[in-house]
Write a protein that binds this DNA or RNA. Structure first.
Lengths: 356, 356
DNA sequence: GCACTCTTGTAGATCGGTCTACGTCATGTG
DNA sequence: CACATGACGTAGACCGATCTACAAGAGTGC
C-alpha cells in the first residue's frame, strides 16, 4: 500500500528527537541490533511511523550495507533476459535486498560501464550476464564485491557462475536434426568469425558442437556458418540471401531463439515452409511455443537460472567464499519448425511453386 | 574498454595526496567546477588515472547529485516495456546520468515499493510506468524529486506525463473492425470489472472507447467484455472458453498485444483461423510483425515514448518546474489477423469442420 | 604605492547514517 | 557488602564526497 508519501527529508536525528533518544538508539532499532529494550523499540517505531522516516541508502552505504543487488544485463529486447530477471526478482522477494538493473548500452563498452556503474553505487553484490568481459577483470572486481556471472563457463575462483550445459544442449539439437535425416545443416551464430572468440562463451560452444557434430556425421564438407552480430533483422536478411541460393540448406540451427525468429521470417519471405527448411533455436523464449511460431528449441529455464544466481549471490553476501559453479540441464523441445527433409528432387519442384 | 579494474577503495583523499593538492581541489576537477588551473587539472587527472579512482556515488549523494535516474517498471515479460527502456537508455547515453531500473514485483504493492526504493537510493529523478498509483501520492513525491510518468492521462501539476492518445488509437481499431463488417466484437481488458477502475488508465480508456463505439454503431446489445488480470495464459483460457460457445464473436479487440497473442493462441486451439475470428491488439510489439503472428495492432512507438520521458526528466532535473504533458499519436497497423467476417451461415458450417 | 579585483587553491563544516567504546544501572554471587 | 556481569543507552569518531568561506598571490588602474 501507499503507506505514506515520501516526506521531504526526515533524518534519523528528527526521529531521535521525537522519540527522546539518541541517534544511535534509533539506528539500533532500524537495524534490529542487539541492546534495545521493548519499551524503547516501541517509542522509536512510533516516532518513525509518525514522521514517515525512511533511512537514506546513500548514508548507509558509507559505512554499512546498501541492501541493494545490482543486475547487469545486455539488450533487454531479447526476451530471454527478462526471464532471468523474473527469477532473480522472485528469489529476492522477502529478503531485505532490492534488485536494481543496469542495462548495458550495446553500442558502448560491452558491460564494463554498466557493471562499474553498479559498483560505484555501492551495491552489496553484482549479477552480470556479459559474456565478453575479461575474466581477469572479473576476478579483480570479485575481490571487492560478491559477483555471480550467468552464462559463462569459466571456472573462476573468485566468483560464482550459473550456466546451462551448452555442449549438451547443442548436441541434442544436432542429434535431432541428423536423426530427422538432415545433411545440409547451416549454423547461425553471433560470434564474429574473423576475431578469435572468447573461449567459454555459450555461442562459441554451440558453434563448436555444430562443427564437430557435422564432422562426426561425415558432413564436414556441408558445414556452413553464418555470423550476424545481433538483432533479428540482420538474421532475417542474411538468411534470406542464403535461402535464395540454389543449394540452400534443409535446416538451420540458430544460436538463439531471437535470430531463429529472423530465420523463420526469412523462410516465409522466401515463400517456403518448415517442410522446406527446418529451423531450430536455443533458449525457449515464450513466443516459441505459440502455434504461429512453434519453434523447436532448447529450454534452459531462464527463471531457474536467475533464481539460482540470486541465491548464490545472497550466500556470498552472507559470507561464503569458496566459488560455486552451477550447471543447469538443458532440454530439447521439439515443435513444428523441424521436420524431415523433403526427398531429393521434390525440393526443386516446390521451390518453383513457392516463387510464383 | 576495461580501463582498469575497480581497485578496492581509492578515495578522493588518496588522489589528493598523490597529486599533492587538497581534497577540495580534486573534487573541483572531477566536477569540472570553476577555479582550476590547467596545470592542476592535469596533475589531478593523472593521479586519478594512476590510482584508478572512482568517486563513490553514495558519498556524493549525501550532498549533491547521484547522477542516477531511476526507472520503475512493471512486468518485464511484456515486451512493450523494454521498448520504453531502450528509448530512455538511448536518450541518456552521452549524458553523465546512469539509468537504473527497479522492477515492481507484480505480487506486492503495485509499484509503490519499487518507486520508494529508488527514492531511498537518492536518484536524481524518477520515470515510472505504474498506472495504478494514487495521483496525490505522486504529487507529494514530485515535490521531493523530479518525476515523469508514462501512460497516465492525469494532467498533473507537479510531474510530467508521456502518453499516447489512447482514445484515438482505440477508435482507429474499432473503426477498422466495424468497416470490415464486424458486428460481434468482444473486448478483452485487464481492468477489473468489479471495482471502479482508476480513471485515466489506458486500458480503461480503451474499454470506454470500445463501449461507445459499439453503441454508436447500434451494437449496444452485442457488447461483451472479458477481464483477465494479466498474463498471456489467462487470456488464452478465457478466450478459448468464449470461442467454443455457440454465439462466439467474429472479432476480438484486446487491450494489449500480450493478451492478443493469447487470443491468437486460443483461436488456433479452437481449430479456427483469422478468417473465423479477427484479432486486434494494442502496442505493436516486435513479434506482431512476424508472418507467423501478423497481428493487427496500434503502434504507440514505445521507444519514442521512452526517449521523450528521459528528455523531460533531464529538463526537470535541469530546473524546469512547469509541468509538461506529451501526447504521442498512435497509428493503426493493419495485418493479416483482421479480415472481413464470413457471410452468415458459412460460419456455422466451418465451425463444425474445425471441431473434427 | 595602494586599494581592488580576479584567479586559484585550501580549511573545515556538513550530509545522514553506522560503529566502537564507554557509562550507568540493576541484578546476581561469594 | 564489594564485585563481577549483563542489559541498555549515549557520545563521538567516521565513511567519502560537496560546498561555503576565506586566504594568498597576481594583475590592474589611478
Amino acid at each position: 500500500m501507499a503507506s505514506r508519501p515520501p516526506t521531504g527529508s526526515v533524518t534519523i536525528e528528527d526521529v531521535a528527537r521525537e522519540a527522546g533518544v539518541s541517534r544511535a538508539a534509533v539506528s539500533k532499532v532500524i537495524r534490529n541490533a542487539y541492546g534495545v529494550s521493548p519499551a524503547m523499540k516501541a517509542r522509536v517505531t512510533e516516532a518513525i511511523e509518525k514522521l514517515g522516516y525512511r533511512p537514506s541508502v546513500s548514508a548507509r552505504g558509507m559505512r554499512g550495507a546498501t541492501f541493494t543487488v545490482g543486475f547487469e544485463i545486455p539488450e533487454l529486447t531479447n526476451p530471454f533476459f527478462p526471464k532471468l530477471l523474473a527469477g532473480a526478482t522472485a528469489a529476492m522477494a522477502g529478503t531485505p535486498y532490492q534488485l536494481v538493473i543496469a542495462p548495458a548500452d550495446p553500442e558502448h563498452g560491452e558491460g564494463y560501464r554498466a557493471i562499474q556503474a553498479l559498483v560505484d553505487r555501492q551495491v552489496d553484490g553484482v549479477i552480470a550476464v556479459s559474456p565478453m568481459v575479461d575474466p581477469e577483470w572479473l576476478e579483480t572486481l570479485a575481490a571487492t564485491v560478491p559477483v555471480v556471472m550467468i552464462g559463462r563457463h569459466d571456472r573462476a575462483s573468485g566468483y560464482d557462475t550459473v550456466v546451462n550445459d551448452d555442449e549438451d544442449g547443442a548436441r541434442q539439437v544436432m542429434r535431432h536434426l541428423l536423426d530427422l535425416g538432415h545433411k545440409d545443416i547451416a549454423h547461425l551464430t553471433s560470434v564474429p568469425l574473423k576475431a578469435a572468440p572468447a573461449p567459454g562463451v555459450p555461442q562459441a560452444i554451440r558453434l563448436e558442437v555444430y562443427r564437430t557434430a557435422m564432422q562426426e556425421a561425415g558432413l564436414a564438407d556441408r558445414v556452413r556458418v553464418l555470423s550476424t552480430p545481433h538483432g533479428v533483422l540482420d538474421a532475417r536478411e542474411v538468411v534470406l540471401r542464403l535461402l535464395t541460393e540454389p543449394d540452400r540448406p534443409t535446416a538451420v540451427f540458430a544460436c538463439h531463439d531471437e535470430p531463429a525468429l529472423g530465420v523463420l521470417h526469412a523462410v516465409a519471405d522466401a515463400g517456403l515452409t518448415a517442410a522446406d527448411v527446418s529451423v531450430a533455436g536455443y533458449d525457449d523464449i515464450e513466443i516459441a511455443a505459440h502455434p504461429g511460431i512453434s519453434l523447436t528449441t532448447v529450454n534452459q529455464d531462464g527463471e531457474r537460472m536467475g533464481r539460482l544466481a540470486a541465491e548464490l549471490l545472497l550466500e556470498r553476501i552472507a559470507g561464503r567464499s569458496e566459488p560455486r559453479h552451477e550447471v543447469v540441464r538443458p532440454e530439447l523441445v521439439v515443435r513444428a519448425s523441424t521436420r524431415p527433409p523433403r526427398p531429393r528432387g521434390g525440393a526443386a519442384r516446390l521451390r518453383a511453386v513457392g516463387r510464383t
